[in-house]
Design a protein around this nucleic acid. Structure first.
Lengths: 250, 250
DNA sequence: AGCGGTCTGTGCGCTCTCGCACTTTCAAAA
DNA sequence: TTTTGAAAGTGCGAGAGCGCACAGACCGCT
């Protein structure tokens, strides 16, 4: 109930944590803590959203669904990002679905509050726009990775991005779900995962993947992961000191 | 020389044409007409740009170049868009290259002028943000199209998008260049192009492709083209009446 | 006319991924 | 303990696309 604990939760999101006191203060009373559960749809393609979500422990996938039912992930957001940029970009809706990929908490802000603060044109606006650019980079990289890299490489990228957002080395995620995210067959993921396991990079059993050798994963994947992360750091790193955590720790 | 003819040129860009008189007037004195030639690089990956370009007759590709030299187009901008959104999004640079794909004119605006008007928060800002969202849609669609669709389908999409920006039905473009854009082999484009030609949709000879049956192309491609165009219309159509031209004409 | 460079056509073996069908393994519920 | 359903393993044929090598066609230039 206390706005103190709500604000504490908010500070776990890197974008909110980067706000100066005045801006954080103006938003503070509007923070709501939301529990997001695995599979929950934050917004559907074409569906108007009425809040922006700033994940703290949750991870959300941006998933495109083709007319024939095929799916492919175009981006992902955890505690370093937000969900619902259509609200301040002006489009209201997007062409993809946002779905919770890892249960957890997000801090929610009503559209009105976000728009009002955005229009003040301060650091809040600046951060949101820079984050939008970093998301564009992520989507771009997904596009070229889809075109030019093997399933093995893409699996590495995907695992690394998810690992960054998590507190633990265990990802609760079936191979079937990963296949939907990567837009490939489940069997393809099975084979790729086994190859990674044989090389001692990960281990997995029935819906739980454990990252064993992060540096090895980074070395095995394509350049895409590093490009996306470096660009995020370049765009937002000066505002978010120490956001690199796990990546530089190992 | 006259600012009148410069302004006339500027009106050929849909985004500039949509500006109300006051905002257009403030920018008007800063307009510069630039001739863009085939292959010219507007900005390199990581290179800071100092002007925003609003194409009128030119077409510009956003091209990603991998470390191993592989390339893939992630988006495209003609008279319905702009080049250089990093200037107002705050990142200054992007991770891709912008290269002229079809020679022509663009109206140029110095970074300072764009930023100043953007910060006033009027329709100019709104249009630029909405355009940015539409570009995100285009990039997203490229990502899923790369993953899930055949070269034939992607070639249709690519031809349609380019055809929209052109005044004629002839595209000056070798199969080799198209292959670079789609991120596939030149031979793959040769085969796909021949299949389209055999069906009477296009004809081509040594670097010139002619669109013969636009509706047929639309029917042969994947859904991606329509999704991108519909989203552009949704985001910007109310500001840019009659922007659909060729698409609805046929 | 002839030359040279660019653009396009073609063949071949190979790899990756797909689509489908089926089996095995495992964990939680009954 | 048994059952049951989800998750993961396996096999096989088909097809798309790749890499490479080379041949022909066309254009502009001298």
């Amino acid at each position: 109930m206390s706005s103190i604990s709500t604000s504490n939760e908010a500070m776990k999101n890197h974008l909110l944590a980067a706000l100066p006191g005045a801006e954080f203060g103006r938003l503070e009373s509007n923070f709501e803590v939301a529990k997001l559960t695995l599979g929950q749809v934050i917004y559907e393609a074409g569906e108007k959203l009425n809040s922006v979500y700033f994940p703290t422990t949750a991870i959300v996938s941006l998933l495109y669904i083709m007319q024939n039912g095929g799916t492919a992930e175009i981006g992902i957001a955890g505690n370093n990002g937000l969900i619902g940029l259509a609200i301040f970009m002006g489009g209201d809706t997007m062409t993809h679905r946002a779905v919770v990929q890892s249960s957890g908490i997000a801090v929610r802000l009503k559209a009105r509050a976000v728009q009002d603060e955005f229009e003040r044109g301060g650091l809040f606006q600046k951060l949101l726009l820079r984050y939008t650019q970093s998301l564009m980079t992520q989507i771009s990289q997904t596009a070229v990775c889809n075109r030019l890299h093997s399933i093995d490489q893409q699996l590495c990228r995907w695992l690394l991005i998810n690992h960054d957002q998590l507190q633990s080395d265990k990802l609760i995620m079936t191979q079937d779900l990963i296949a939907n995210m990567l837009g490939v067959r489940r069997e393809g993921v099975t084979l790729a995962a086994r190859r990674l396991q044989e090389r001692g990079l990960i281990s997995y059993v029935r819906g739980t993947i454990t990252v064993l050798d992060r540096k090895g994963l980074e070395a095995s994947g394509c350049e895409c992961y590093q490009v996306v992360m470096d660009e995020y750091d370049r765009l937002l790193g000066t505002y978010i000191p120490n956001n690199t955590g796990k990546r530089k720790a190992s």
